[in-house]
Amino acid sequence: MTHATPALEPISDLVAVVPAGGVGSRLWPLSQPTRPKFLLDLLGTGSTLIQDTVTRLSALTDEVYIVTGARHADAVAAQVPQVPQELLIAEPSPRDSMAAIALAAAVIEQRRGPSIMGSFAADHVITETQAFAEAVATAVAAARTGKVVTIGIEPTEPSSAFGYIRQGSGLEGVAGAMDVREFTEKPDPETAAQMLADGGYVWNAGMFVVSTDVLLGHLARLQPTLAEGVRRIAAAWDGPERAAVLDEVWPTLTKIAIDHAIAEPVAAEGGVAVVPASLGWHDIGDFDSLASMLTPDAQGVISVGRTAPAAMVKASGATVVGGDRPVVVVGVDDAVVVETDEALLVTTRQAAQAVKDAATSISGL
């Protein structure tokens, strides 16, 4: 799904960071703790989500760091061998996005001094790569002014699946960047519709561009224990004490998302900017969103990762994922059938968000 990016000059002071964490439990049983969604070819393109992400970022910078769980490090390294081993940061256990991103920032600064860092999730789909490159370049220019910058997605519908960013006035000296007035948690559908009617809102896609010293400076004020911890780990990262310091300090780091730790409080102080963009962006968070990106066959069935036949009787809109046996859906519209070696899931596209609850009850994800 990712189109080729036209030849671009790399952004000399940009270092990309790819946080590759999370199970993707709304895509259970396809996505598992040992097989998270960023390692999957969900769209049948021949490349996985993390491979597409690294390819997209490699057009913009020569340095792409990946932060992932220790149990996924070998699989990540195998999928993106173009990323040098020294740019792969393995975290011993999940501590949420702030710890992962802050550790990368601290390691980058330890190695090369203050640098502009861009954090981009491993599991997002972006089809408009030229627009993405332009948005990143604008975000880097805004970050050079000392702002924490996020790339906001121009909404295509009043979705309640995403957080929203309220834009303020234009950022002086940086065309295409706006001050952020506030972040809003995922709203209910009625509130989301009102936001779109009012205008001036974009979706929060969790893409951040900021100078490492600015990020770590805010962290030292707002989350001092976390800031001190990642700096201590980074100081030992390229030496023989890495493992010992990591084992000692990592479990003590505050478990918090970057939105709550940095973005929201710094926005309240006027320190956050947003670059609104239309990128062909998709967060494949559940089987409904996955199905929306795929084309049905002549019978109207969406098939993913299977060659066995699937059919419908007095039904429409079926999505069938995996498995090597014939599947027939009778009398259920928008059914979702997912078969893996571990489990069989039967649901509907309307109930796709509830799959996370099923995954938790069955396998303790």
Rank of each mutant, 00 (worst) to 15 (best):
H3E: 15
T5F: 03
P10M: 09
V17C: 14
G24W: 01
R26V: 02
W28Y: 14
Q32V: 01
K37I: 01
L39R: 07
G44Y: 03
G46I: 06
S47R: 15
D52G: 12
T53S: 06
S58L: 07
T61G: 08
T61Y: 12
Y65E: 04
Y65P: 00
V67A: 09
T68M: 02
G69Q: 04
V76S: 10
Q82K: 04
Q82N: 11
Q85E: 14
E86V: 09
A90G: 05
S93M: 15
L103Y: 14
A104Q: 07
Q110C: 09
R112L: 10
P114H: 09
I116H: 01
A121G: 15
V125C: 10
Q130S: 15
F132I: 00
A135H: 04
A139N: 03
V140W: 02
T145W: 05
K147N: 11
V148L: 15
P155F: 02
T156P: 00
S159G: 11
I165P: 01
R166Y: 11
Q167W: 03
S169E: 15
V174Q: 04
A177C: 12
F183R: 00
T184L: 15
E185W: 15
K186C: 10
E190S: 04
Q194H: 03
D198H: 10
N204C: 11
S211W: 01
V214F: 04
L215A: 06
L216Q: 02
L222C: 04
L222N: 05
V230F: 14
R231D: 08
R232C: 10
R242M: 02
V245Q: 00
L246C: 14
D247H: 12
T252D: 13
T252A: 15
D259L: 13
I262R: 10
A263K: 05
P265W: 12
G271C: 10
V274P: 01
V274S: 08
A277R: 00
D283R: 14
D283F: 14
I284N: 04
D297Y: 07
V301P: 01
S303K: 12
T307M: 09
V313P: 00
G317F: 06
G322Q: 13
G323D: 03
V330E: 13
V338F: 06
V338Y: 02
E339G: 09
D341E: 14
A343S: 11
L345F: 06
V346K: 08
R349N: 07
A358F: 09
A359Q: 11
A359N: 13
I362H: 06
G364I: 12
